[in-house]
Nucleic acid binder design. Structure first.
Lengths: 293, 293
DNA sequence: CGGGTCTTTGATTAGGTTCAATAAGAGTGG
DNA sequence: CCACTCTTATTGAACCTAATCAAAGACCCG
């Protein structure tokens, strides 16, 4: 288990190495990388057919180093960002100076959208690793959208998707237990890594327990404890930032008993190891145990 | 205090009565109401200057009765809705059939946006009172947007605003105590009523404790108890669905001690009555009491 | 190697859920 | 109009999850 930090070397590599990558496109020009519309849409996972000649519209890339701030709260808005490689976090700062993590943008994600309304960014974006971002000057982009209907619709689509994502987040925070939140977080990370072509079974967390906790509405201790618990019952392996997914299905279906509804009949013992869960007695369980089918 | 249900009669009145209202526009035509672009933007609180002649674009109204479903999850998406009058809720249904309330759209709110991405509604919208909604056929709307740049930008703006709203919701669910959530909920309701021209001091809740709880990530019992507690310490008056706001400032500033940060110095005793709070000893409080400045 | 950050783990407490019982309304139909 | 039912709201008591407080290890970087 010494290959823990091998799952996504590329994003850790310096920008110059990105250029020689075979997976992504982007041309060196004026010492920077550029992408065309097609690449943008591929990145955003948006189904779209573009006419030839669109290659002329190029969007500039920018590199950020770990810890750098892409934009801050209140800063005048003028551009959206698409993650080409690397990992980030977006945060809100409350009146006590505490961070509230809103999202962990990674390859293919769009951020900065919250700045459109007030013309100022409502959140802050910080690079959790070296990042390569594509700049989308909003004015230029909407102008382009009028010529390219698909592009305009793509924009609506992406914003709609973000909204649905936030709704799912609200739903999760409002209804799920700590264990379920952490489990879902791991599964979604795993899925994202798979989409990006990395291993979905073994990856490194790019964020601290504190950041995960903030994102999930939990304390860092609870996150740490929950990961340890998952490790103990064999759902995952944990070693600091390195996570190995051992039982995706269990993680996916892990919930808590639905609030105010006591029909916990199927105490299925499908997976014996799940029942070895710490504070759970396999027999004396008129309620739903840690994991359900 | 017998005028409890007088704060917003109009929304309870039958559609025909709406027509004679002096506050909103809308023309009777073909037995239905119609609104033009200008009215739409006013309703959405979007700053915009329209050229003359825009009056020709008319948007149809539709009426729904209390309890009626406007759209359901999975239903093919083709139109957005703007609330002209009345109250609704949008909900997600989880795998156990439990409702998760996402929002309480009211006058000036846009909903249905979550359907754009997958072309199917991701949530369900239900009328909590008799409603008058403006239909926004999405295709027609985007087509119009290309001719009217302001309109296109308005659309982006509204979607961005929704996103910021959801972010604030996530932040609230992740960081605030039950008391703070209920307090903020009341304040935001109060603000909304004020915007609509109703009393911000006395209004009727349109939703059940259960729905409020779902929205805030709490149980109905906690909501009920918290309202009772606020009532006892004089922040509000409660009588079933009727709420009287007595101390907006206290409600606004009510928080809990920030998670993982122990600088709680300003134990300001600005308002004595606040310190009369139930389970709180004014003196023995090295931590932040119920209310802060 | 040393200081700082991050993580793990334990002990304790408190805030909120759950279960339960009662009361208050809102409809419905005789 | 009243009995009956169903939904909604209130309140109490016990329990439990996750937060808080605390301390020790692990890791990183200069």
């Amino acid at each position: 288990m010494l290959s823990t930090q091998m799952s996504d070397i590329r994003s850790e590599a310096p920008p110059s190495a990105l250029h020689s990558s075979s997976l992504e496109a982007g041309w060196q020009r004026q010492g920077k990388l550029w992408s065309n519309l097609k690449e943008l849409c591929d990145l955003l996972r948006i189904p779209s057919a573009f006419s030839v000649g669109d290659e002329e519209f190029l969007f500039q890339h920018v590199q950020f180093k770990t810890g750098q701030r892409i934009h801050t709260i209140g800063q005048p808005f003028d551009t959206l960002y698409i993650v080409h490689s690397g990992f980030l976090k977006t945060v809100l700062i409350d009146e006590f100076g505490n961070e509230q993590v809103l999202s962990f943008p990674m390859k293919g994600d769009l951020f900065g959208v919250d700045g459109i309304h007030t013309r100022r960014y409502a959140s802050e974006a910080v690079a959790l690793s070296n990042c390569d971002l594509i700049l989308l000057p909003f004015k230029k982009f909407t102008a382009l959208g009028r010529a390219h209907i698909e592009l305009e619709h793509a924009m609506y689509s992406v914003m709609s998707r973000e909204l649905v994502r936030e709704q799912a987040m609200v739903s999760m925070l409002g209804a799920l237990s700590a264990e379920a939140r952490v489990a879902r977080f791991l599964v979604s990370l795993s899925d994202r890594f798979a989409e990006m072509g990395y291993s979905s079974k073994l990856f490194n967390l790019r964020m601290t327990r504190h950041e995960i906790g903030s994102y999930l509405g939990l304390t860092l201790e609870t996150v740490s404890r929950t990961l340890s618990a998952f490790n103990e019952i064999g759902l995952i392996t944990v070693d600091q930032r390195s996570i190995g997914i051992k039982d995706v299905d269990a993680l996916k279906t892990l919930r808590r008993l639905p609030p105010s509804s006591s029909r916990a009949k199927q105490v299925a013992s499908k997976k014996a190891k799940q029942l070895a869960a710490a504070r759970i007695e396999p027999d004396a369980a008129p309620w739903e145990p840690l994991v359900t089918v």
